[in-house]
């Protein structure tokens, strides 16, 4: 009896997952196969012909091969900002968790403020212009790091509190310098939360739309999400090309996830077991 209910529950869960995750993805794929006329209907139907390769070619070559520039830019922005985020957030979290001073309260307040206060666009652009960083990739990377740092710090700080202080002390006694303690002892122990950070932040930054829209003007600076605007406009949308574009820019993160799936899951469960 008990077994039967669990089987039914399992099937229900699988069905729900299918409806929520797989059907929208199937819809994207089907739309990418259609031509413009049929795609304008936006229904769940079998494509009338095979137009996938035409659509892909059209999407990639639109606006002077903008897609390729966009992939390079987005990859650069994502990889560099996530790297910086992890290094900086882990360092801040480490110091905050280990060293109790009377400034801790103030620092934590500032971190929370960074999380809660929405950034204003125009003053940020003025600041970037003053620093000669406006409209450059490294300027954009610094923005992504700044906007996402508080969240990462909070994740790290909570986790570092669970790592016994004796480990650092043992390392110091064995002759490790402060940087060694951090990079060779603490950072490897942080792997579970680092994986969480990589997953959450890289998805967020790769899919970021509004920040590049305002802070990164210019054709040479396009990011993948901005290429969607090549096919979707206020009054007219080429749905076949739009969905082909969505398909193309969804695949790379998907591949990364399939590839790192085991490590990600392992990292997360390792964190759970340690408690």
């Amino acid at each position: 009896m008990k077994q039967r209910t669990s089987i039914i529950g399992g099937f229900a869960a699988i069905a729900a997952t299918f409806v929520v995750f797989v059907i929208p993805f199937l819809f994207i794929i089907l739309m990418a196969f259609k031509d413009r006329q049929q795609s304008a209907l936006r229904d769940f139907s079998w494509p009338n012909g095979f137009h996938l390769f035409d659509n892909i070619f059209e999407v990639v070559k639109t606006r002077n091969w903008m897609m390729i520039t966009a992939f390079i830019n987005s990859t650069l922005i994502t990889v560099v900002s996530v790297t910086l985020l992890i290094v900086f957030a882990a360092m801040v979290g480490f110091v905050l968790a280990r060293r109790k001073t009377r400034f801790n309260g103030l620092i934590e307040f500032l971190i929370l403020a960074g999380l809660m206060i929405p950034p204003a666009v125009v003053p940020t652009i003025w600041l970037l212009q003053g620093l000669k960083l406006f409209g450059t990739l490294h300027g954009m990377i610094l923005i992504e790091v700044a906007y996402n740092l508080p969240f990462s710090i909070i994740l790290y700080r909570a986790f570092i509190a669970t790592i016994p202080r004796e480990l650092d002390e043992a390392a110091v006694i064995d002759g490790a310098r402060p940087l060694d303690v951090f990079f060779r002892i603490v950072l490897p122990l942080l792997w579970p939360v680092t994986v969480t950070n990589i997953v959450v932040q890289s998805v967020g930054i790769f899919n970021d739309f509004t920040n590049p829209l305002y802070y990164l003007p210019g054709n040479g600076n396009a990011t993948v999400q901005l290429t969607l605007y090549n096919f979707q406009s206020q009054f007219s949308t080429a749905y076949n090309l739009l969905f082909t574009n969505i398909l193309l820019i969804t695949i790379p993160p998907l591949i990364v996830f399939l590839f790192f799936n085991r490590q990600i899951v392992a990292g997360m469960t390792a964190g759970a077991v340690k408690g």
Binding site: R63, L213, Y214, G218, N219, Y229, S233, Q234, F235
Partner: peptide, 14 residues
């Protein structure tokens, strides 16, 4: 150099 922006409210903001 042609640059493209979205239309509608987002375009107004840009």
């Amino acid at each position: 150099d042609i640059e493209v922006r979205p239309g509608g409210g987002e375009g107004d903001n840009i």
